[in-house]
């Protein structure tokens, strides 16, 4: 942390003080780690000043890069919608954030960032579905237990 003695101040050290994110930055050689809301403009090697608290409102101010050629990564938005609006667990909200990041980064030309966000969106969609299933099974067991208990008392009644 900030022992910038041996290094020239401009040396692009990977993320000294920025709030790094769980496991961010292992597959992204040029950039330290994806900032939570896709701040650093893509393809700008020296731009390392990531604003820590920056929010998506900043994106129109970024220089516009065209979307890369080829199919964009899947953002799993449908799964996020299904889990938040058509079912019951709000964990899908996180999925929507990553889905928006996928398209945001992709349309600005940040292929690596978009792929990384797509991976996270998929992960959260799966977790959301998994947690949902577990919780519903638990509630089901809870209800079946009550039902069995009621049946038991009913059958012992005369």
């Amino acid at each position: 942390m900030s022992t910038d003695g041996p290094y020239p101040p401009s040396a692009p050290e990977p993320e000294p003080g920025t709030p790094s994110w769980p496991a961010g930055g292992q597959q992204q050689p040029p950039y330290g780690g994806p900032a939570p809301y896709g701040q650093p403009g893509p393809a700008q090697p020296p731009a390392y000043q990531q604003q820590p608290g920056a929010y998506p409102a900043g994106y129109p101010a970024q220089p516009v890069y065209g979307p890369p050629a080829g199919p964009p990564p899947d953002n799993f938005l449908v799964w996020a919608i299904l889990s938040t609006v058509l079912c019951c667990l709000p964990l899908g909200i996180v999925s929507i954030v990553y889905a928006a990041q996928v398209n945001d980064k992709w349309l600005r030309g940040d292929v690596a960032g978009a792929t990384e966000s797509a991976r996270k969106a998929k992960q959260f969609a799966i977790w959301s579905a998994g947690v949902q299933a577990v919780v519903l099974v638990l509630i089901g067991i809870f209800y079946i237990g009550i039902f069995a208990l009621a049946l038991g008392t009913a059958s012992t009644a005369p």
């Binding site: 998506p56 994106y59 979307p67 080829g70 199919p71 964009p72 899947d74 953002n75 938005l77 919608i81 909200i93 929507i96 954030v97 889905a99 928006a100 996928v102 398209n103 945001d104 992709w106 349309l107």
Partner: peptide, 16 residues
Amino acid sequence: RARTWAAPPWAVWSLL
């Protein structure tokens, strides 16, 4: 065909 279209980010942020 593969998907070539990505929804505009503002639309996804608005949905959120």
